[in-house]
Design a protein around this nucleic acid. Structure first.
Lengths: 168, 168
DNA sequence: CTAAACTTTCAATAATATTTGAAAGTTTAG
DNA sequence: CTAAACTTTCAAATATTATTGAAAGTTTAG
């Protein structure tokens, strides 16, 4: 397999993985492309490599920047903007975890809090099942939140080293 | 807030969370409904509570069974099938992690393995960036895999207790 | 076996999400 | 300031994914 084929396959695979996890396929592909590019790419480069429109390229790059995964780079003597992706996969992972926590977990925690004070007969098994279900989920979500927080602060090697030793 | 309102809100919230993580909104809603139902529900019950068609109810229940989150229950003297969901949120979490690992992470690991042997000039920075990018991701994915494996085997309290102590 | 009760399938339809491309907006060189 | 170079926006078009409902399939009581 040569480089061009490899790149193509990787971009495809990353896009598929992303889409299964609720991330726009194209956004994941742009990310993949930038991850394996040693130098920053322009919007034109991205459009060409992925065969997508200018608007699409622009939007997805902007989203990647919002996610903290990509940065704008300016080359001196050039008016174009170039884009560069964080390549340390550990940083990428923690950044994604952080964002998803903020965007998707925290809102649910808020709703769960409100749901804890449902009024009703404590002897009604429906009420009981509801309250117990909610509180279990809340406990879980709170722990997940704490674990994630800590992971985000931890360094890659230290974290995995410690975890793996602990769990060997 | 009374029980009916609470249920509705929870089902909505769970559906939204699911859809953001690439899980069919309705599947997540059926799951939510069953999670807070003390007794098993029939297809009819589900159709009525969620206002969905028979086919839709059937398909999503079947998917939940495939994911190992829901079981068929037979009531004696009744030909209908009833459905019951695992309510221990820890078991739910590990089961989901297990399935997603199998369905979505492992296929990517396979592709990454093949991509490691891209032919090309090692001095070409494009080749270098590609090979390094891939190997970093592979390392990460393998570690995630191992960590997940262990989590799956661990018991809820023990796991979180250990993690929290370690990371205090 | 037969018919009623129930479950599953799947082509057509509807809903949702993504993409395009041209127009509008912005920045900067001269 | 002006025009060229570049970026952003967004309504319309496309593509993807989910849902319906009726027909086909299956199971079981009698």
């Amino acid at each position: 397999m040569n480089l061009v084929e490899g790149k193509e396959q990787f971009i495809q695979a990353w896009g598929t993985l992303g889409s299964k996890w609720g991330i726009n396929r194209t956004m994941a592909q742009v990310h993949a492309l930038l991850m394996i590019s040693p130098d920053p790419l322009s919007t034109e480069d991205i459009m060409q490599e992925l065969n997508i429109s200018r608007g699409n390229a622009n939007m997805n790059v902007r989203d990647l920047i919002d996610w903290g995964l990509v940065e704008k780079v300016h080359k001196s003597g050039d008016r174009k903007e170039y884009f560069w992706a964080e390549k340390d996969i550990w940083k990428v992972t923690t950044q994604v975890a952080k964002e998803r926590k903020k965007r998707e977990l925290e809102p649910v925690l808020k709703v769960l809090d409100q749901l804890s004070n449902v009024k009703g007969d404590r002897n009604d098994k429906n009420v009981k099942a509801f309250v117990e279900g909610i509180s279990g989920i809340k406990r879980m979500a709170t722990n997940a939140d704490k674990t994630l927080e800590t992971m985000i602060k931890a360094e890659e090697n230290w974290f995995f080293g410690a975890i793996l030793k602990l769990f060997k």
